[in-house]
Design a protein around this nucleic acid. Structure first.
Lengths: 332, 332
DNA sequence: TTGTATGCGTTATCAT
DNA sequence: ATGATAACGCATACAA
């Protein structure tokens, strides 16, 4: 392995000068700088990141912990985070938490062990109440769903407001009986509860009574569960003419399930989702959905985490992501 | 920061004994071991990975370079690789290459700079001909598409064979004019070429003449391009009753595009794809597709890279992933 | 079984 | 502007 010492010898300078050149620091004359650059080139020298980290205490790595990287929503988010972090000179290491509090606690521990400079945690298991994150001084930015009562920097989703907008839109389109296909409320998952509140609020605002029979609490927020929910709704016999799905992934399953039982969208039933995954625009019918600004969220998360790395004592900040309701065929 | 020295002082032993306990080495009496464990617990000590790495020369990190993490196919692959690597005690750092040779060369350089113990590279830009990977002794496993003539460990896709099977299936279903919606052949992208060969081969085997007008070379393998291709095919006036799409993502766009122009699937046109992305089974109509065994590929890739890390001199290996043709509604 | 000395490659500090 | 020296925290080799 080629070290700074080798380069220094080759260039006829001290290794400190090599270090200064490598890190683009001042105090090196132009001819010497050029000589060192040449020596680096010739020798094929590369900095040893471990040694640098050991000395400086910084790894230049930000952790990104998501439930599962192969869900479209998180893949998109990760892609943006990687890109934004790169612009600021940080590398991103991805952790999968498996959508469980235990996995999220692991991710936090991991972030310390592997000396990530900071961690962006898309938490769905931990919260500010019964399952709280472990104490620690590591820079953590919470992303998305849960609420932590100001203990962390937090980029929140406009869950309640945006869901209300989606439900209001369904009512505008003439729906009278809107089913809500979502997670089970007893999960105490903030995202599920907040979106449900938004749904109920929109109904109440129009004087529509919520029918408990049209509330479907899924065991998992998957395509398969969405499909089964549609089957169940159809089998129950209670008439419905709209479905609000808690995520696009669930909505995709619902669309499929409605097709299974011969219900046409939007003619018989209108459907809306949440997330605006890339596929939403290409489904048949194309899916109406809430589109949070993913790029904005990623940018803000990286900004917050880098700021906290630079100044750990900063007061925590909280932002709510902007969103748009994208109206497509499924609610025409 | 708590170091081994602190723990040693707390437990009343030397730091070497602490090191032995931390690394589960023998030669430590049970009482001492317990005392050290307690001291670690109380002090909140964590090993400093950089220091360990600096000594041992191993980071315990495998790089995974993919074109874009937010494509369903690569998200799924990454998820598997992360899981398999974890089982072997490795951490995975994800790089995005942007589907370009330059990005792939960067990823290789990055892997050296960041001292990944090995790299799994899902190459689409580099190949064994005009754009070759830079020389270097770093353990690299090539995954997927390109062909490198035995210079690297390689997990290949059954591109030609599986595509031939898909085309044969379309013919079996009664298709007489099967369009191939794929990338441009002048990309010289092995994946595109191999799949096209497979398609032509299957036609030839049945004595069907290939109609050049039914070959659509896209500028990008995206949903939007697939949609546009369907529009173009319909507008061209040349009758067709089958579409073989080079990937499921393109197929998704084709399905959408056919719907746009009022063609029904499978009644008017049958459609098949390649990859078996998670959404394929839930589309309306559900998509017939080639399903390579992703878990197997991930497992094999991690196995190969860890073996090469352990024994850099090993001869290179090449495997072809198993696959299945999953028949769904789009070709019923 | 336990302890001591040394070096991994880099950067901060201080000196020249 | 450049160089010498001392850490950073850990693990190897060897001594006790």
């Amino acid at each position: 392995m080629v070290t700074m010492d080798d380069v220094a010898r080759l260039a006829g300078v001290s290794k400190m000068t090599v270090s200064n050149v490598v890190n683009n620091r001042g105090g090196v004359s132009e001819p010497v700088r050029r000589r060192v650059r040449e020596a680096i080139e010739r020798s094929g020298y590369r900095v040893n990141v471990s040694a640098r980290t050991l000395r400086s205490g910084r790894t230049g790595v930000i952790g990104l912990a998501v439930p599962e990287i192969d869900r479209p929503y998180f893949g998109r988010l990760a892609s943006h985070v990687i890109e934004r972090a790169r612009r600021r000179g940080f590398h991103v290491a991805i952790e999968q938490t498996g959508a469980a509090a235990a996995g999220e606690i692991d991710a936090i521990a991991h972030a310390r062990t592997l000396q990530f400079d900071g961690l962006i945690l898309s938490a769905v298991g931990l919260d500010g109440r019964d399952r709280t994150p472990p104490e620690g001084d590591h820079p953590i930015v919470m992303l998305g769903e849960q609420d932590f009562g100001g203990r962390f920097d937090h980029i929140a989703m406009p869950n309640e407001e945006a869901t209300a907008a989606a439900t209001a839109h369904l009512l505008d389109r003439g729906c009278r009986a809107v089913a809500h296909v979502t997670g089970r409320l007893d999960w105490n998952l903030n995202m599920v509860n907040a979106r449900h509140r938004g749904h109920l609020g929109a109904l109440a605002a129009r004087g529509v009574e919520a029918d408990p029979a049209l509330h479907v609490g899924l065991d998992a927020l998957t395509m398969e569960a969405g499909r089964a929910a549609a089957h169940r709704l159809a089998a129950a016999g209670r008439p419905f003419d709209g479905v609000l799905a808690v995520t696009d992934t669930v909505a995709l399953g619902v669309l499929r399930g409605l097709a299974d039982v011969g219900l046409r969208v939007p003619d018989d039933v209108r459907v809306a989702g949440f997330d605006d995954i890339a596929e939403a625009a290409y489904l048949v019918p194309a899916l109406t959905t809430v589109a949070p600004d993913h790029a904005w969220m990623a940018e803000k998360a990286v900004e917050l985490v880098t700021e906290r790395i630079a100044d750990p004592g900063r007061p925590t900040a909280r932002y709510v992501a902007p969103y748009a309701l994208v109206i497509r065929e499924s609610t025409r």
